[in-house]
Structure formats: C-alpha cells, structure tokens
Design a binder for these strands. Structure first.
Lengths: 148, 148
DNA sequence: TCAGTCAGTTCGCTCGTTGAACTTAGAGGA
DNA sequence: TCCTCTAAGTTCAACGAGCGAACTGACTGA
C-alpha cells in the first residue's frame, strides 16, 4: 500500500513531516545551501541514487522550494535555485543542526560548527519565542485554533 | 536494498535526518508532547499501523528520547516517557511548526497557533543566533571543523 | 462464561529505495 | 571520421519497509 500522506493534515508539523520524511530530502536541501545547483553535484556530494534524486528534485520544485532553470539550451541543461520558501527552510535545518550537535554525539558536542563568514565568530542556532526572545518551555504551551 | 543510513555521518543534520526521516516519527514525538504515553494512545490519535509504531517506539527508546516504564506488573503494561533528550527535541518540532505555518498554507497562515497556557498569549517560534539574538542569515554562514 | 482492555505480533500485499547499466545530445581532440 | 567525455536524466531487478486487518496472551469486571 501507499505510504500514508500527511500533506493535507491540518497541522504544520504533519505537513512538514510529509516533506522531510522523504528519505534524503533534508540532505538535498543542506547541499543546496552549500551551493549545489546541478544534478551531478548532488550525486557526487551525497551518493544519492539518481532515480531518487530525480524524484526529490521534482517534489521540491513542485513545492516551490527550488526553481528549475535552464542554464544552457543545446543540449538542454538545468540547474536548481533556492526560492524564498526554500531559503526560509534553513531555520528547520538550523534547529536540526543544533539538536543534533547537542545530543547525537556521545560527548555532547558535534565535530562541526557554524561561523560567520566575515567575523569568524561561532553562530549557535537556538529556538526562541519571537515576542519575548526567550526559549520555549513546552510544558507551558497549548494549541489553539486560530480565529478567522 | 536497505535504505542508506546517515546515523554515522559526521554532520548533525544527517544524523537528525536519519531519525526523523523514519516516516511517522515526528508525529509520534508531537503526540508525546501532547501527553500520549501508551501504545493505544498513539494508534488512536494517529491511525499509525501497530507494527510501525512498535518499530518507532523501539528506535526512540534506543535513542534515549523516550523511556519505557512499566506502570502495571500483572499483566505487564508499559508507558513511554519523554527524557531530557526527547524534551530538547521540541525545538526541532517548533521550527517545523513555524516554517509549516508560514509556508505550507496558501494564505500564509496555518490554522493552529501555540499559546502560553497561563497568559493565553501567542507563542511564535523563531530560530536565532544564541549569541546575538538575531535571525540567522544563511548567506553569511560557513561550516568549520571544531578544534579538539 | 463472556466481553473488554492493553500491548503488542503475524501476515500477505504493494510501494519505495538501491546500485548498476543505459540513453540522449552535444563538445573537443586525434 | 571515430573516440571519449560531460550532463541530466531513465530503466530495471532485487529487496526492504509500510500498509490494513486479523490474531494473541494475560488479565479484569459484569
């Protein structure tokens, strides 16, 4: 049977899960942020099967996270550019980066760090409440239907 | 063939992808944050196939995001409690929540909101640099190996 | 005795992922 | 002319994973 789809569920976590629950997809986006634009860039960098990459890129284009642009006409050659929606997705990767660095290494610190390209200072992603600037305490949270 | 594993890759995004790339897993965690503790709670709330839930709970226990605790001896009955690592994972779900709310609905605003249990005020997750409190600009980022 | 609860397991079916080979359209060199 | 190379895919067989439904085992309560 077909995998249960979540992309019409009325919950933002469910819809996002539907997208990144496709195996490889977050890594395809990670590579896009590292500047990969072409089919073989991803194949080489990730070792992703070509048929899978075809499917993932198609989905990401359809979701308007990437835009497929011809950079050569004869023969037809394409590259994939991040859209505004795709760029915004970096926040999700940054949260994964932080949690993964904190908790997925035995000694409590991952081997890689993010730094500012100019100043060289470390950038440490953290999730806060936009209104207060404070970290979010799940135990004080409730879900509410937005009035329309 | 076996799905390519990312859980030993030296990148926090890859390792986190390996975990949440398992179909259903982020939703299992979402339900844990809503207070689900027992096997049939998840089956009822999500409609997840029982065999899949068994596999997901096993993985989450092995990853130490949930702890399996007997709440009854005869017959043996278990519940699953969030650990510190599991609670920390909320940040990833919050980032997914925010991005999903902003971008996965046509009109730019999801149907649900997070509010403070006491004050009733809206809580809007956002990802910032912990050192500056400012949003992260991907174009100014570089990845660096941590010196050990 | 019989229905109900809970936490799973088992099963047959289908879908998705994998690695390798192949395709198509052109460029550049001997 | 022929050969090799590049880029962006497509095709294919094998196999692992997800699907729904039915079943199990240990108990409880009517």
């Amino acid at each position: 049977m077909r995998r249960t789809r979540f992309d019409e569920w009325p919950c933002p976590i469910a819809r996002t899960t539907d997208l990144i629950g496709d195996w490889w997809t977050p890594l395809v986006m990670r590579e896009a942020f590292l500047g990969r634009k072409r089919f073989d860039d991803w194949v080489t960098a990730l070792g992703i099967p070509r048929a899978v990459l075809t499917a993932r890129l198609e989905r990401l284009v359809q979701e308007e996270m990437l835009r497929k642009v011809a950079y050569e006409e004869r023969p037809a050659r394409y590259e994939y550019k991040l859209t505004e929606k795709g760029i915004a997705f970096y926040d999700v990767l940054a949260a994964m980066w932080r949690w993964g660095s904190d908790w997925q290494w035995g000694d409590g610190e991952g081997p890689l760090m993010l730094v500012d390209r100019d100043s060289g200072e470390e950038v440490v992603p953290t999730v806060v409440n936009e209104h207060t600037g404070e970290r979010i305490d799940v135990r004080r949270l409730r879900v509410k239907t937005r009035a329309h």
